[in-house]
């Protein structure tokens, strides 16, 4: 099954080290994607529950955030909602209302977009305050941007890499190896 082209791509981040990767994805997509492509690119700074109205207005959304792990940084993951809630964000939103909580609340309210994909890049604790991405995370961001470019511009179907994102389309093929 072919993936659904998103109307919105949201990168969530903060100025804090590798946690800024969501912004970097948006910035690099802005440079690469052709202007006529009808996709809204949004960079958000820990929006908390303010994420929900943005999701509500979108038919299809790709959401990018950093995910804290003890494993290798720079890996691309597509967690489902329960996995995201367990792991938690490296930098919480206001009042502890981060992306996972906002998505859970949106799901409870039944206002998640029909097609929502979560794309996370793993980060560690080595770069929590820097102004640049660490090399591994930087490479992971480049890989994710390339992947999005292929899907959006070259119509390469990457849904084979899907492993159960919230409300996303397509879950065929092998798990993500990237």
């Amino acid at each position: 099954m072919a993936s659904i082209t998103p109307t919105t791509i949201i990168g969530v981040g903060s100025p804090a080290g590798d946690d800024r990767l969501g912004w970097e994805v948006i910035a690099r997509l802005q440079q690469r994607l052709p202007a006529q492509l009808n996709v809204e690119l949004i960079a958000l700074d820990r929006p908390g529950s303010g994420l929900i109205p943005l999701l509500q207005g979108s038919d299809g959304c790709w959401l990018i955030d950093a995910i804290a792990t003890t494993g290798a940084p720079g890996r691309h993951l597509q967690p489902d909602l329960s996995e995201l809630a367990q792991v938690g964000a490296p930098v919480s939103g206001s009042h502890g209302f981060g992306v996972a909580e906002s998505l859970q609340l949106a799901a409870t309210l039944g206002v998640l977009p029909a097609h929502l994909e979560l794309h996370c890049v793993t980060i560690g604790t080595a770069n929590l305050l820097g102004e640049q991405l660490s090399p591994a995370v930087d490479a992971g961001v480049d890989g994710l941007v390339q992947r999005f470019y292929q899907r959006l511009v070259q119509s390469v179907d990457h849904t084979a890499t899907f492993k159960g994102g919230v409300g996303s389309t397509g879950s065929v093929g092998s798990p993500d190896r990237s």
Binding site: G50, P53, Q104, L105, T108, L109
Partner: peptide, 24 residues
Amino acid sequence: SAIAMAQDYPEAVQRGLRLQALGN
């Protein structure tokens, strides 16, 4: 939590989100 509350009071939570979004 608000997430648990939203199951029984979805309209109240939606109202809060609308007001918050307008303020933003």
